[in-house]
Write a protein that binds this DNA or RNA. Structure first.
Lengths: 243, 243
DNA sequence: ATTGGATCAATTGTGCACAATTTTAGCGGA
DNA sequence: TCCGCTAAAATTGTGCACAATTGATCCAAT
């Protein structure tokens, strides 16, 4: 199997979020699974680590990310900043053709929502953000947006909140209107507000799913330096015990 | 020598832009220079490649980037988008302390400019952008901003236009005023305009330095698939001939 | 003289064996 | 029962030797 194939396969798997956070990804084990040498796996693992899709610790190996709530906030805040900038930029530079493409996309979202085609709606909903990034025509921006969207996907998959946490269709249309009329400030604000809403829809579930953190409860009664640090460690131990 | 040290050393060297674009970075050669094994160098090289500080081609090795004008535009456009988003975000979230820190920074810039301390002024000028990214408190954003600022540094170093292409002090103050007064839209626009100005100050030099592209002239009389692709290749050949 | 192909040198990619580090299991004592 | 220590097992890191690919040089043929 090719190295890029292995990387793509593992990426899909990680983005799907099927493994619990902190799961160990042993080199020898993966080498057996894919039927390739361990070195091949090593390279892919380090690459995934640099892409922030897994966490690699020196002399300890690779682990799936344990998405503590603070990471949710960090990623969504980063998306608000970056995609807010994208929206503002597009409001100034969008061509008539691009406006029409966007209009068609939002219309398809509405249509899918109306006809109850939930699967299509989910896909279109996710593609909307990527489409905007692509419309900048800037490969650097596309790359950065792809990374953030990927991390978001992992987060929502982990909190298995696929049902309600998707993008609201009306909000996409609001963003579109601001873009189409060239209202730079409004477009940026709308995008930022939209992403903030998604985060709030996601967060409540996180607390439920995270279970009893125990150490965090103790930490609440002490000075607050950085509570989430220990949550991660506990999740790792639990996951490793399963393996 | 440690692996991280080698990475840091090469990073500094690349960002300084001392080597011409397209210079080959042979593994065996670097291994001899640093006095370490080739594998160590390989790892660092691939890491640098993933960070877009060099270009690694399969079965051919690593090369310093050949900054064609299109890359200049791409990087600066990306900075306008990202840092525009950062400025807009900060206008909403800046604390009084942060406002004072920024004010002090801009004052120091003015002071350095007035007293003719050019070295200090250049440093402060560059740090202004990084300071804003850091003030988001978001590691993801800091990381992305660092990458773009780094690539910008390489570009200005390559075009050896260090003299006039630095940030205008007045523009920084304009951005600061918008941030301090919480004018989100104005802050984003000011940052975007500021970066656009830097690019225009830089570009004329680029065209002079690029020399006669030759293949591009031929390409102009054919169908336009992706002209910049061949410019890069020519720069590589020229650089390799020197080595 | 130029183009085409083939061989050869140089450089990168890969698998394997060994070294270093971490983790775990076992054991004895407080 | 719990803690500390030691040793062994497992896992990752590294250097080396060899394979594969690329680029260049040379020679021949048109």
């Amino acid at each position: 199997m090719d190295e890029d194939q292995i990387h793509a396969t593992l990426s899909r798997m990680l983005l799907a979020g099927r493994l619990p956070g902190g799961t160990k990804l042993g080199e020898h084990r993966l080498a057996d699974i894919f039927g390739v040498s361990r070195e091949r796996i090593r390279k892919v693992l380090h690459r995934l680590g640099h892409e922030r899709l897994i966490e690699v610790v020196k002399n300890r190996g690779a682990f799936t990310l344990a998405p503590d709530p603070s990471e949710v906030h960090v990623v969504f805040e980063a998306r608000r900043i970056l995609e807010g900038g994208i929206a503002a930029h597009l409001a100034d530079t969008l061509s008539p053709d691009q406006v029409e493409t966007l209009r068609a996309h939002v219309d398809r979202e509405s249509e899918a929502l109306k006809t109850g085609d939930r699967r299509t709606w989910l896909r279109l909903s996710a593609e909307f953000h990527f489409l905007l990034a692509a419309m900048t025509g800037n490969p650097v921006i596309v790359q950065q947006a792809r990374e953030l969207v990927g991390r978001t996907t992992m987060l929502v998959a982990f909190y298995e909140n696929n049902a309600g946490a998707q993008c609201g269709c009306a909000e996409h249309r609001t963003i579109f209107r601001a873009l189409a009329s060239g209202e730079r400030a409004r477009a940026g604000k709308a995008m930022s507000a939209h992403l903030a809403l998604i985060e709030t829809r996601l967060r409540p579930l996180a607390c439920v799913d995270a279970g009893p953190p125990l150490e965090d409860v103790i930490a609440e009664f002490m000075e607050p330096p950085s509570p989430p640090a220990r949550t991660r460690r506990k999740a790792q131990m639990k996951a490793e015990a399963q393996a």
